[in-house]
Amino acid sequence: MIANVIGVLFDGVAYGSLLFIIAVGLAVTLGLMNFVNLAHGVFAMVGGYVCVVLMTRAGVPFLATLPVAFVAAAIVGLVLERTLYQHLYRASPLDQVLFTIGVVYMSIAGATYVFGSSQQPVFLPSYLRGQVHVLGVDLGVYRLFLVAVVALLTYALHLLLERTRFGSQVRASVDNPVAAAGLGINVNRVFALTFALGSGLAGLGGGLGIDVLGLDPTFPLKYMVYFLLVVAVGGSGTIKGPLVAAVILGVFDVSGKYFVPQIGGFVIYALMVLLLIVFPAGLYGRRT
């Protein structure tokens, strides 16, 4: 029984790690740039399809597809940010919601047209398949891999935002863009690069998550609420908040679906309501 619980908890952590790596970009665009981007999952889907196409049509190994997924999603994000999104930074939240919902439905229709409506396959290398036996518990190798990759990425992201000049410029641009520009920071460029980084991470998460989350054209809509949950519960504008929130939500969602499957998503949404009542600004609000 205990081994079972530990196994479920571990699956929840792995699931939460995936949610985090996809949603962390949304925490940046929503929390730092104050842009309500409901289409964030589109970038994850782009990354997923890039991986699938490279694997199935070009025979590229799974791991080699992941950097390409990151770059492709980052480029798509950068192009959309420069051509479309930047015009809506000063628009009302409702306008941003309507616009990005439109992007979601366009992407669903586009992906269905190109790839069909079925789930896409992923071919994991043999060394990432199967289970390992750790302290009496069977843990999925791929889930261990996911947790390790996300831990590394989180640390790298932390270093980038907290220890580099670029990271300081991002935070300055968010805290007060007028002052940042007045002191010589190219705020538009900083925001565009930040948006691209967030999109790229979502794309990477989309590729990494095919085996766990699945991939079909409805992906951006299916997981939209989960990504928003991570940011709303964690607190936008930080890394730590969404990380903690994603792991909590991942563990409770997986546990709920495993132990009380008859109530479906009740557990995770009840938890969201509770956490938002207790922490209305999220678990970790931004410094003001």
């Binding site: 000049r165 300055a172 002191l183």
Partner: peptide, 27 residues
């Protein structure tokens, strides 16, 4: 600013999420 104008705004406009040193090194 990059052309050579330094601005000290009336509101001071501190950046709450940056340390003193980061205020300086970032610009």
């Amino acid at each position: 600013a990059r052309a050579g104008i330094g601005w000290v705004p009336q509101e001071r406009y501190m950046w709450p999420s940056l340390t003193i040193e980061e205020h300086l090194t970032s610009v």
